[in-house]
Design a protein around this nucleic acid. Structure first.
Lengths: 212, 212
DNA sequence: TAGATTGTTAATCGATTAACAATC
DNA sequence: TAGATTGTTAATCGATTAACAATC
């Protein structure tokens, strides 16, 4: 696979999982690991592991394997979580509030800098020391704060207009929790979390397996 | 592609998206659509659409295309959302509570029948008319209620033991919101929602695109 | 009938796995 | 040096796209 130029999405989607396993190994005090040993733990082929890592250059050493700490730190850099990344949450409903309180992000270097809503009952309340601001403040806020990512947690019918507004104000990465698909300029990166879709896939697989 | 025997996961993962688009067409009062027209809307190839549908039998008609309502109803049956499906939520923390209050599931026929936790401050509180029960009640509850799916929303370190318990009590489909991977018997279907992984993938793509 | 569009086969593309020479 | 394991090339597999005969 010639991935030195453009890393295939299939590989990119596996990176966080490697990163998690490496993190666990590091915590367990394991200093080196071969692609074969890792393949047994992760239930993938050793071949795939070596191919994947080699998209980013040779991190291993013949006859030795991979140094866990080194590889972990390389993955950290590749994934961009070696620096703090700033995120805002748009929509402080069920999902937005859950994200605001979710403490796993901080471990990964993600910082929630702001939360926005339009509901007057919600604006002004506090979530984890962060005061929910009105959407009208978003423009000024983005001028004064370097934000990488916006998590969209607004109701279905507002999704499109809010997405457009956020993009207009310069956001280039959107984490979309709405079932609605976003139709945005090519240079805006979107990652969707379609919960209902995911649940239906689970249901399909479950029904399929119970047929047998 | 010979998918009449075993439908490839790649196809299954696309089904909810088709279902959503068909639902939108239906609401818009559109009665028929060709694979070509649908391909323009969905930004996939017409060939893929026809291939995908044909894994489940011929739903179209030469020279005419597909009847929207018929296709929608077929997809509904294929996905298993033509009947009510019952779900429990294990762990009434941030994510668990957000799921309990998320009203999109009901539209898809999913019903939250029970919510469980071990924290005495949370047990007994109500979420959407459902009283949070103690995990000790789970066994009895599952005896008296037909449950299809368990959504696991427990803290990282409890994930493994709770998953084992749930499986021991007969659950065969787990919707896992923990970052921890589950190691369960083959006949248990797991669908993971690794939020941090997803966020890292978004970050990677964003950083990649901003390099250019 | 003529036109349109499916269902399906064949061709292409990309991703995964296997194999092994390079080398620590 | 001998053994182990990588990095990388080649082989295989599966998924996507193209093409077109069947047919409404």
């Amino acid at each position: 696979m010639d991935c030195k130029r453009k890393v295939p999405v299939a590989v990119v989607r596996r990176l966080p999982r490697y990163y998690r396993y490496l993190s666990d190994l590091l915590k367990a005090g394991i200093t080196r690991i071969s692609s074969h040993e890792l393949s047994l733990k992760m239930r993938v082929t050793a071949s795939q592991i070596r191919q994947d890592f080699n998209c980013f250059g040779g991190f291993g050493q013949q006859g030795y394997g991979y140094n866990v700490e080194f590889l972990y730190n390389e993955l950290k850099k590749i994934l961009g979580v070696d620096e703090k990344r700033y995120m805002i949450i748009i929509g402080a409903g069920n999902i937005g509030r859950a994200l605001a309180r979710y403490d796993n992000f901080e471990k990964r270097g993600f910082v929630v800098s702001g939360i926005f809503d339009v509901n007057p009952d919600i604006v002004g309340t506090e979530l984890r020391d962060i005061k929910v601001q009105h959407m009208d403040n978003l423009k000024d806020f983005l001028k004064n704060n370097k934000i990488d990512i916006a998590a969209l947690c607004v109701p279905y019918n507002n999704t499109h207009s809010v997405a457009l507004k956020v993009v207009e104000l310069g956001i280039k990465a959107i984490w979309n929790f709405s079932a609605m698909e976003l139709d945005l300029p090519q240079d805006v990166i979107v990652e969707n979390v379609h919960l209902s879709d995911n649940l239906m896939i689970l249901l399909y697989k479950y029904l399929e397996s119970s047929k047998e």
